[in-house]
């Protein structure tokens, strides 16, 4: 098991290294660079000025050198300078992380609160009207584009309350912040809740077919006790995994939701930085996202190993 840990760890590092190359190369394929954007923003196309900016930002140096500089800096905790703001990239990225993290946690909370109970109910009442309605509801959760849902919520909010929740810079106090993030979190979480519900349901059904459940039933345990004591507990393991993975993958949903609700988190910042060809920001943000995904996967594996003694790690 020790060697498995080491191996997993090395693989993680390797994956992140691969990602750093991939993102670095892909960004350089993007047509136009920051110098183009800057001269374009000024409405001029003077090649001399463009060259000056490119030189100032080090864009004229060989790609390998640029890559080396970035990675070298990363290992020292130096993320480089953001092209657009001309400030250290860390100063631009760091304040945005807590906002997205809070949003993710709230979305996750929302999706678990909805997803798990409904999944259990759906499984216990398999093939009843209730089950069908819940399944249709969860499928619709997977089908609604979250930006559309966001727009509808905004529309409804204006219609009924005459106002919309706009994220103000420094929310005054915890409650206000929760209030501001609640609706976007629900919009992002809706999709995950659907996913969690589906998984809870199928996992419950799987467990309920197992021999030990049948045994418990035949021994005269009540339905409720079987369903909730035996089945649910065993069914939750895969659910926990998916929750972990969803946590990392919610970033996808955040991109559009932060845009619709104008929340200054990392996801919207990523889109903005891509648009501005702000390589230092994009590179580091992508690495951050990859790091979170890889770490969460790792933790989920570890959790599995601890929780489910049946899994052996021989190799």
């Amino acid at each position: 098991m020790g060697s498995y840990l080491v191996r997993r760890f090395l693989l993680m590092a390797l994956t992140l290294f691969g990602m750093s190359i991939l993102i670095f190369v892909m960004l350089r394929l993007v047509p136009g660079d920051i110098a183009d954007i800057l001269v374009d923003a000024a409405g001029i196309a003077d090649p001399k000025e463009k060259a000056k900016i490119a030189k100032e930002l080090g864009l004229d140096r060989p790609i390998i050198e640029q890559y080396g500089q970035w990675i070298g800096g990363l290992t020292r905790g130096d993320l480089g300078f953001a092209y657009v703001s001309e400030r250290p990239a860390i100063e631009e990225i760091a304040p945005r992380i807590p906002i997205s993290a809070k949003l993710t946690l709230m979305a996750l909370f929302f999706s678990v609160i909805l997803g798990v109970p409904f999944g259990v109910i759906s499984a216990v009442r398999q093939n009843t009207t209730l089950d069908y309605s819940l399944r249709v509801l969860s499928l619709s959760g997977l089908s609604l584009p979250s930006f559309w849902l966001g727009l509808l919520v905004l529309m409804a909010s204006v219609h009924w309350f005459g106002t919309i929740p706009i994220y103000t810079n420094e929310p005054r106090g915890f409650l206000q912040e929760v209030g501001l993030l609640a609706i976007p979190a629900a919009v992002v979480g809706f999709r995950s809740s659907a996913l969690i519900m589906r998984l809870t349901r199928s996992s419950m059904l799987e467990v309920m077919r197992q021999d030990y459940i049948r045994t418990a039933r035949s021994k005269g345990a009540t339905n409720t006790s079987v369903n909730y004591n035996h089945a649910l507990r065993n069914a939750l393991l895969p659910v926990v995994t998916i929750i972990g993975i969803e946590a990392a993958f919610l970033v996808g949903g955040l991109i559009v939701t932060e845009t619709v609700f104008n929340i200054p988190g990392v996801a919207r910042f990523l889109v903005e930085a891509i648009r501005w060809r702000d390589y230092p920001i994009v590179q580091n943000l992508v690495m951050l996202i990859a790091f979170v995904v890889v770490t969460v996967n790792f933790l989920v594996d570890m959790a599995y190993m601890v929780l489910d003694p049946r899994i052996k790690y021989a190799d």
């Binding site: 106002t163 706009i166 619709v260 609700f261």
Partner: peptide, 18 residues
């Protein structure tokens, strides 16, 4: 000044008194 790239959000914000 608050930067709101989405015009509908901006307009709604003005209408709502933000």
């Amino acid at each position: 000044w608050k930067i709101v790239p989405n015009r509908s959000t901006r307009t709604l914000g003005f209408v709502a008194g933000e």
